[in-house]
Lab assay of single mutants.
Amino acid sequence: DIIVVALYDYEAIHHEDLSFQKGDQMVVLEESGEWWKARSLATRKEGYIPSNYVARVDS
């Protein structure tokens, strides 16, 4: 799995977006363009995230 960590807070604009806080970790489910589908490890919610707001966690 690709794990990313939030670099900034993000408040969902559309209902399919995923809100998150700086430091939150998410599993990337699908990478396509600038918006990635991800699942929050904390809340288990899924939605689209702006890929420029996150960084990959080296395992």
Rank of each mutant, 00 (worst) to 15 (best):
W36F: 12
I2F: 15
Q25A: 09
D24A: 05
L7Y: 03
W35P: 07
T43P: 02
Y8W: 11
D9R: 04
D24Q: 07
W35E: 04
E46R: 04
A42D: 10
L7Q: 05
V27W: 09
S40I: 13
G33K: 05
V5S: 04
E34P: 12
P50C: 11
I49W: 01
D58T: 12
W35M: 10
V57Y: 10
V28T: 03
L7A: 03
E16P: 04
Y8H: 09
D24K: 01
I13E: 11
E34M: 14
T43R: 03
I3G: 02
S59H: 11
R44D: 13
G47Q: 00
Y8T: 07
Q25K: 15
I49Y: 01
Y48P: 00
E30Y: 10
L29T: 07
I49N: 01
D9F: 04
S59L: 12
W36V: 09
S32W: 12
I49K: 00
E16Q: 12
L18N: 01
I49C: 02
V5R: 06
E16A: 11
L41H: 04
Q21R: 15
V27R: 07
K45W: 05
H15K: 13
E30S: 11
E11K: 12
R56I: 12
Y10Q: 02
A42T: 12
L41D: 04
D24R: 01
I13K: 13
G47S: 00
A12I: 03
I49E: 01
Y48T: 06
D58V: 12
K22T: 08
G47N: 00
E31C: 15
V4D: 00
E31W: 15
E30W: 11
V57W: 09
A42Y: 07
A38F: 01
S32Q: 12
S51T: 05
T43V: 03
G23E: 03
A38R: 00
P50N: 11
G23S: 03
A6F: 01
V4N: 00
H15N: 13
F20G: 01
Y48N: 09
G33I: 03
D24N: 04
N52S: 15
P50H: 07
G23V: 01
L7W: 03
V28M: 04
K22R: 10
K45G: 07
P50K: 06
K22G: 04
E31L: 14
L41M: 10
R56H: 10
V54T: 04
V54I: 07
A55W: 08
A38S: 03
A6P: 00
W36M: 14
Q21V: 11
D1Q: 14
H15L: 14
Q25D: 03
K22P: 03
S32Y: 14
S59Q: 13
H14D: 09
Q21E: 08
T43L: 03
I2P: 08
G47K: 00
S51G: 08
S32A: 11
H15Q: 14
L41E: 05
E31V: 13
Y8F: 12
D58R: 10
N52W: 15
A12H: 02
Q25T: 11
Y48I: 07
V27E: 09
Y48D: 03
V5H: 05
I49D: 01
A12D: 02
Y53V: 05
L29R: 04
E46Y: 06
A6D: 00
A38N: 01
D24H: 06
E30A: 09
I3V: 10
A55T: 13
S51M: 10
L18P: 01
R44L: 15
V57P: 07
S40R: 06
S51D: 03
D24L: 02
A55S: 11
V57S: 08
A12C: 04
S51L: 06
D1E: 14
Y10I: 02
L7D: 01
G33W: 04
D9W: 03
E30R: 08
G47V: 02
A42L: 11
E31T: 14
S19N: 06
K37F: 15
A55F: 08
Y10M: 03
S59Y: 11
S59I: 12
A6E: 00
A42C: 10
T43E: 06
I3K: 05
W36D: 02
S51A: 13
D58H: 12
I49H: 01
D9G: 06
I2E: 07
I3C: 08
A38K: 01
W35I: 08
D9L: 02
D17P: 02
P50L: 08
E30F: 10
A12G: 11
E46I: 11
E31S: 15
I2N: 11
Q21Y: 09
I49M: 02
D17I: 07
H15M: 13
E31M: 15
W35G: 04
V54K: 01
K37M: 14
W36N: 03
D58E: 12
H15G: 11
H14E: 07
R56N: 07
P50V: 02
I2M: 13
R44A: 13
P50F: 06
E11W: 10
E16V: 08
R39H: 08
L18M: 09
V54L: 04
K22W: 04
T43Y: 04
Y53G: 06
V28I: 14
M26V: 01
K37L: 15
